[in-house]
Write a protein that binds this DNA or RNA. Sequence first.
DNA 1: CTGAAAGCGCTTACAG
DNA 2: CTGAAAGCGCTTACAG
Lengths: 335, 335
Amino acid sequence: MGKVRQADIARVAGVSQATVSVVLGGNRTGVRLSERTRLRVLEAAERLGYVPDPVSSRLAATGNNLLGVYTFTPAFPDIADVYYPILAGVEAEAAALGKDLIMFTASSAAPDRIRRTRLADGCLFLGRHVPVDAIADLLAAGFPIVHIGRRTELGGRIPHVGADYVSASAEVITRLARAGHQRARYLREPDDAPSSWDRERGVRAAAAEAGVSLVVSRTDGTDLSAASIRGWLDDGVTALVVEETDTGAVFDATWRVLRAAGVSVPGDVSLAVLGRPPAGVEGPLISGFEVPRRELGRAAVRLLASLVEPGTGEPSLHRLLTCPPVAGETIATVG
Amino acid sequence: MGKVRQADIARVAGVSQATVSVVLGGNRTGVRLSERTRLRVLEAAERLGYVPDPVSSRLAATGNNLLGVYTFTPAFPDIADVYYPILAGVEAEAAALGKDLIMFTASSAAPDRIRRTRLADGCLFLGRHVPVDAIADLLAAGFPIVHIGRRTELGGRIPHVGADYVSASAEVITRLARAGHQRARYLREPDDAPSSWDRERGVRAAAAEAGVSLVVSRTDGTDLSAASIRGWLDDGVTALVVEETDTGAVFDATWRVLRAAGVSVPGDVSLAVLGRPPAGVEGPLISGFEVPRRELGRAAVRLLASLVEPGTGEPSLHRLLTCPPVAGETIATVG
DNA sequence: CTGAAAGCGCTTACAG
DNA sequence: CTGAAAGCGCTTACAG
C-alpha cells in the first residue's frame, strides 16, 4: 500500500499529471475536458485508491485555512469561566467558515515565539495585557490580527472586537441612581487594562450625570475587611459596585467579607458587579450585566476571516458589542 | 511585509537558500559550516522575523511541531464538563513539550476532511465513536495518531490512552455488595461505545463475583418513570447504578425521576454513578469514581509525541489510567 | 481540448 | 567548507 500520487493515476490513465489535478479538483478553472478523459482519470483514481495529500495541496494553493489563537494567559487551566465561552464562540464560527484553529500554547509565550503565529493565515489574540512590540511587528508586516477585547495601545491601531463596558457600566450606575442611591463605592482591579478603564469611565460619567457621589478604590481584594465596609456604610454609602475580571478575585473577596461581616445584601447595602458574577456564588442573583463572550469569539473570527480574505468592502476594524443588563436581585430601592 | 522565506534570508546573508536551511535546521546532517556563516544566517533570520512554513517543511518531510486535536463532537459547545478537562490536560502537556495545537473544527468532520489532520505531525482523536475507515487509512499511511479513550475497533490497533472503566466499575459494584446490596439495576446508554461496554463488563463481572443479582437496562433516560423505578424497588432492588457519558442525560433523568417520585437517596435506594455526576446537581455527593480526564489529556499528548519522534524505545501503544473511587454519600448499608 | 512548465517553501543528497 | 540541483505532491497559469 504505497502512497498513490496523481502521477500514478496519470500514468494509468495515459494523461498528464496536471490533467489529473484538473479533473480531481473538479475543474474549477473551467478548462475544457473531454468526458472520456475525465472518466478515465476518475476511474483510475478510484481503482488505485487515490487520497489527496493535504499538505501538498496546501503548499500549492494560497493560504492554509488556519486561524491562530494566541492567549497570553494559558487558555485552559484556570480562568475557565472567562475564556471558555469565548473559545467556544471562536470554534463555532471557525467551524462555520470551514477554518481550523491553531492554538499557540502557553510555552509559545516566549517573546520570539509570538512570531510563530504567522504560520496561520491570521491570528486572534486574547488576554488582559498585550505584548505591544510583538503586535506592532505583526501589524507592520501586514499580518492579519484581531484582538478579542478592546485595545488602546499603538494609537488604537490594533483591530479588535470588544465589549462595550463603558455603556454597560454607566447603565448600572444609572440603575442605582434610579433606585434612589446617592453614594456608592466602586471597587476596581489595581492594574491597568482597557477593560478596567472602560468600566471606570462609564461609572464616573454616569455618576456625574446622575449626581451620584462615587468613590473609586483600587483593590486586589486582599485588603478588604469588615471594618472598611462598615466604614463606608457609616459614611452613607448604600451601594457597592465591583469590577469583574479574569480571576473574579475582587468580587469573591467582597462577597466573602460581606458575608463574614453579616452585612445583608441588598438589605444593608446594594451590590452590583460590572460583568457577570463568578459562577458558584451561593445566594441571590447579583445585579450587573452580561458579557456576550461567545458572540465576542464569533465576531472576532468573522473579522479576522474578512481580514484574511479581503473581499466585500473594508470591514470595521474596531467593534464593540453590547452587554445586556442583568436585573438581578441585589439592587434595593432606597430613600 | 509578505512572508519571509529562507530565500530572503539567503539574499541578506549572502549565502544560498540551502545553506540557510541547513543552519536553521540545526545542521542535523552534520555538514561543515563556518561559524561566521552560521551567525550571519541566524542574525538575518532574527532580523527579518523568519518563521518556517510548516506546510513546506512538512512536504519536505520533517516535523512542524504541531499536534492535531480532532474531536468528532464539537469540542467546545455543550459537553464542557467532559471535554474541557481533557483539553486542559492536552494544552498543558503540549505547552510543556513546546508543541502547538491544531484544533480541527467540527466542520472538518466531513468524511474527507479528516485527512486534513495530516497537516500536523500527528493527531489526537476524541469522541464517543470513531470514523473507522478514515482512521484505518491514517494508520495504514503510518501517520501517528492517538485516541483519547480506549478503542477496540480495527482489531485493537488504534493507539489509545483511556480510563480503566472495567476496574473502576467493578469496584463500585463490590462496594455495593460490601454494603449488603443483593439486587441492583444498571442503567446504561443505548448506543455502543467501548467506554459503555467496559463499564458493563466490569459491572457484570463484579456482580457475578459478589453474588449480586443485577439487571442491565439500556436507556437514554426518556423512558424512565416513577412507576418503573417503584417497580424495581418492589422487586427488591436496593441500588441503582448509572453510567456517566458525555451528555450526562441518563444520570440527569434518573435523578429527576427519583426526586419527582419522592424516592429518597440513599434512604429508599442507594445510587452510584460510573464516573462523575454532572456538575450542578443539588444534593448529596453521588458515590462513584473520578475519571482522570486531565491526566488522560496529558498522557495522550506524551504518547503521541513519542510516536511522532521515535526515540527512546517503543512506547506502549495502549494505556489505561486508574479511576480513583469517590466514596460519596449515596451508598447506604442495608440488610 | 490537453500537455508541459513553473512554482509553493522547504530538506536532503550531491557536486564542487 | 559552500552552492546548485532535485524533489516532496500539488495547483495554476500558459502554450500548443
